[in-house]
């Protein structure tokens, strides 16, 4: 989908039924910009079902995105939504959360948005342990700009900017997030939607920085150049490659080569959350001023 394109609302707004995800959608903004077979809508829906489960309030929830096909999700969500600039969603979200700790703050980002241009903000957000939930849609490419290589394209992957095969390794984004200090780290796929929903739900309730990598398919740009072709095949491929953390535990790195380890990968509730420790500091200052 070309950058700058947007859907024009010409459809009749559908009647929102409180117990479906339509409750959280600007259905009048449909049709959405995503290609047929794209996994971004699936991941977004998993997030919205998690939101329904938790009963997130529209007025108390702010969803911030960067730039990319994945980040376009915010244009359809009926929360306070910020479609920010490329790579900086977490920096915007940091300002929002610090100014209003009572808001539930969610960040939607892509692998280019979150791990390339926004990589520095990602590691610092992990380190700060602010209570923000980040969902990174990993489709292994720059979808919006037409299939260029992303840090997650992987060795040997093809992209318009890697016509002879990409020769750089990728990040293990979850290990990166954990090492940087995220206190909740999980991975799911657009095939395992129930698991993904649960991981997102638990990430939102986790009091600290939650990082959820959602591995998903971009049939148009990545799938065009890399096997297997076609959305169904790509989803099947995700299913075959996915392996739960439990199962993966006893396996060697060689055996895990090319597999996608899913599930809750790391959780630590002992680290203080930033808005809470900031509030305690304010309290200390107030007390010493009173004395």
């Amino acid at each position: 989908m070309a950058e700058g394109e947007s859907s024009v609302a010409e459809q009749e707004p559908s009647v929102a039924e409180p117990r479906t995800i339509d409750h959280y959608l600007h259905t009048d903004r449909f049709p959405h910009i995503w290609c047929p077979g794209c996994g971004l809508g699936t991941v977004t829906a998993a997030f919205l079902r998690a939101a329904l489960e938790l009963g997130l309030e529209k007025d108390r929830t702010v969803v911030v995105a960067g730039i990319g096909c994945s980040s376009r999700a915010v244009g359809y969500l009926d929360f306070g939504t910020v479609h920010s600039i490329h790579g900086r969603a977490l920096a915007f979200a940091t300002g929002i959360k610090m100014a209003h700790p009572e808001f539930t703050v969610i960040v939607l980002t892509g692998d280019g948005d979150g791990a390339a241009i926004g990589g520095n903000h990602l590691i610092h957000a992990c380190r700060r342990n602010l209570d923000i939930t980040t969902i990174l849609f990993n489709n292994n490419t720059y979808g919006m700009t037409g299939g260029q290589a992303s840090p997650q394209t992987g060795m040997g992957g093809y992209a318009t900017t890697a016509p002879f095969g990409f020769d750089e390794p990728s990040f293990d984004l979850c290990r990166l997030a954990e090492a940087a200090g995220a206190t909740y780290v999980a991975r799911g796929t657009s095939y395992g939607v129930r698991q993904l929903q649960k991981l997102i739900r638990d990430g939102i309730t986790h009091p600290g920085f939650s990082f959820i990598e959602a591995v998903t398919q971009c049939p148009t740009e990545y799938g065009k150049r890399n096997p297997p072709k076609g959305p169904v095949q790509m989803l099947e491929n995700l299913k075959e490659k996915a392996i739960s953390r439990k199962k993966a535990e006893g396996m060697t790195p060689e055996e895990l080569e090319g597999r996608i380890v899913t599930g809750l990968l790391h959780r630590d509730e002992s680290v203080p959350e930033l808005t809470a420790s900031y509030a305690r500091m304010l309290e200390r200052i107030r007390k010493s001023a009173d004395e």
Partner: peptide
């Protein structure tokens, strides 16, 4: 902090202004 405000030292100037815009939007 003495007036209940928020001070953040960010990782760079891009993050600094983005955080300011985020706070401003609230």
């Amino acid at each position: 902090p003495a007036v209940g405000g928020v001070f953040m030292q960010m990782e760079d100037e891009i993050a600094s202004i983005c955080a300011c815009i985020g706070a401003s939007l609230t």
